[in-house]
């Protein structure tokens, strides 16, 4: 007897044995199908504090669920599931499992900050979204994607030299993501650039690629920045009850 109201059940809550024989009785499929409960049975009481410990999340506890943020939200206008009010509620009372269901759309905040201006309680929802995306990353809920890898290569180079050299970022990005260096779009772009840019600039670009120049007196600044980031990273991991490891990607 197949379930008529199947669309009302989360697929992961259906426990089914396509083929099963119990004590000589064939109970395959529908005959042995069970439904798991969708009831919430506990709160994660650390969750609000964890988000609050990350930059941007400091004022999450003020929220009273008026919905102004969602009403003004740029992303919500085209993606109804993007609902900062709802996520703030989930975080505040610690419904982690529910929040994680939306982990793939949660990072889509475009930081327009309309919510920041409209919030009557100064929650800074945009900051909360940022903190939440960060939280997902730290907790390991967001596997590497091309965009996070690109970000990392980009940042690493800045940390290393205080500058960005696009060619190198691209090369490393392709290497890390296992892509061929020779991409048709890249080739045509390079050809376009070479034919249009002044020779002097081309020379400088070529030299930079070889010599990897640094910002002047960078090593001192780098030490200070790295130190700060590591300190920050350790604090964040502590707040999130994660084992002490590397800070953010330095």
């Amino acid at each position: 007897m197949p379930i008529h109201e199947k669309s009302l059940i989360r697929p992961e809550n259906i426990i089914r044995h396509e083929s099963m024989n119990l004590q000589g009785v064939d109970v395959s499929g529908d005959w042995s199908t069970f439904i798991g409960s969708r009831t919430i049975t506990d709160y994660n009481e650390d969750m609000q504090d964890e988000i609050a410990a990350l930059p941007g999340g400091e004022y999450i506890h003020r929220c009273w669920q008026c919905g102004s943020c969602t009403n003004t939200c740029t992303v919500n206008a085209i993606e109804a599931r993007f609902n900062p009010r709802y996520w703030i509620y989930l975080i505040r009372i610690g419904l982690e499992e529910e929040l994680l269901r939306d982990k793939d759309i949660l990072w889509q905040c475009v930081s327009c900050n309309k919510c920041t201006y409209t919030c009557p309680r100064d929650v800074v929802p945009e900051g909360v979204m940022k903190a939440t995306a960060h939280w997902l990353e730290l907790k390991g809920h967001t596997p590497d994607s091309p965009s996070t890898i690109f970000d990392r290569e980009f940042s690493n180079q800045i940390f290393a030299t205080g500058k960005v050299e696009e060619g190198r970022v691209l090369r490393r990005f392709f290497a890390s993501t296992g892509q061929a260096l020779r991409q048709p779009w890249l080739e045509s772009m390079v050809i376009g650039l070479v034919s249009r840019l002044p020779v002097k600039m081309l020379l400088r670009l070529g030299l930079s690629a070889v010599l990897r120049p640094k910002t002047r007196k960078w090593s001192k600044s780098r030490a200070a920045i790295t130190d700060y980031l590591q300190q920050q990273g350790r604090a964040e991991r502590r707040a999130l009850h994660l084992s002490a490891g590397e800070g953010t990607h330095v």
Partner: peptide, 14 residues
Amino acid sequence: IGEREFTRSFAIDR
């Protein structure tokens, strides 16, 4: 009669 998946799940779990 029509959908014992619910019945058996509820009877056992709850």
